[in-house]
């Protein structure tokens, strides 16, 4: 198979250790826990398309300040000093202007950055919390597991968006608070999923061997169990990025977004609340399409993981 040669190619190049024995097919591959999921993604065409979209969007997010042609909140004026409201797309304003004379293209470009900040930070926070919860709960079991899973049960009965609305409404609409709320909301499902993966992993013989050989719990968890459940963690982090972006967009659309940044949800909210949702297509369509593309791409990547982690769905 072509992909397996790719795997060995990558792993041989990334390993600085000399390969002891070419015949030894069980030789440990240092970054296998990370590279295996990645090569698996490259094999799935939908996931590959998703990766490309996410990659391009990330590039735009990084270079956003250089791509944007105007400051996002600068009101465009005519030479006579009148506000250029709701202009159609032109060479000066690639995507026209808003009802306040702001350049839509620049706001749209800055939105890439906001989406990736929210998605990235939110997913990292969710990933760390749910992985720790899942690892500790699943590995130690017993009383600790009971307590942690009760906490998860309570957290699971909190309705997501209403909680976000109330929390952000009370704490104040800022990007930090939105990310905090995302972290508080989405660790719970991840903890469940990772825990069940750890539960099956814990029963494997190698864990007992490692313990018998004198390895500490800490060592077993992070050196042996974590790399083996990494696919599940990866899946959950990918989905969390999507959830985070979706939650921020929804909150912003409702009107609880950070007023100091221009996210896509915020753009749609401004168009909606100023009554231009139905007429100013140049203002509404770009953020909508970008949101759909980004979230769908992340779901496509997540789906590829799901298909691979569930052997019954795998194609033979």
């Amino acid at each position: 198979m072509a992909s397996s040669t790719l795997v060995s190619f990558i792993s041989e190049n990334s390993m600085s250790v000399t390969v002891q024995d070419k015949q030894d097919i069980t030789s440990p591959r240092m970054f296998g826990w990370f590279l295996d999921p990645l090569t698996m993604l490259l094999r799935d065409r939908f996931a590959l398309a998703g990766l490309v979209v996410v990659g391009v969007f990330a590039g735009i997010a990084i270079f956003a300040p250089w791509i944007a042609t105007h400051p996002p909140y600068e009101a465009a004026l005519t030479p006579e000093g009148r506000l250029l409201r709701l202009q159609l797309p032109s060479s000066e304003h690639y995507l026209g202007t808003t009802t306040f004379g702001h350049d839509v293209f620049s706001q749209f470009i800055v939105g890439f950055r906001v989406a990736f900040i929210v998605g990235g930070l939110g997913a990292i926070a969710v990933g760390i919390i749910s992985t720790l919860f899942g690892l500790i709960s699943g590995y130690f079991g017993g009383f600790i597991d009971d307590v942690l899973m009760r906490i998860t049960d309570v957290a699971l009965s909190i309705p997501t968006l209403p909680f976000a609305i109330v929390a952000v409404g009370l704490l104040g609409p800022s990007l930090n608070n939105i990310i905090l709320v995302i972290a508080l909301l989405f660790w719970r499902n991840g903890a469940r999923i990772i825990r069940s993966a750890v539960l099956t992993e814990r029963e494997r013989v190698y864990v007992k061997w490692a313990r018998a050989a004198g390895a500490s719990h800490f060592h077993v968890i992070f050196r042996h169990v974590l790399p083996n459940v990494f696919r599940v963690v990866f899946l959950w982090v990918t989905m969390s990025v999507a959830f985070a972006i979706l939650t921020e967009a929804s909150l912003s659309f409702i009107g609880l977004g950070d007023p100091s940044v221009t996210s896509w949800g915020q753009m749609l909210n401004t168009a909606f609340s100023s009554g231009n949702l139905r007429s100013a297509w140049w203002w509404v369509v770009p953020p909508s399409i970008a949101l759909v593309m980004l979230i769908s791409s992340l779901y496509l990547i997540g789906r590829a993981f799901e298909e691979q982690t569930n052997p019954r769905l795998r194609r033979t």
Partner: peptide
Amino acid sequence: LIATIIRGTPSFIIGIALLA
């Protein structure tokens, strides 16, 4: 593919599209 794209569409965008 279609199901995943619709699933990735925030509900308010579905609403906006229907309105439009």
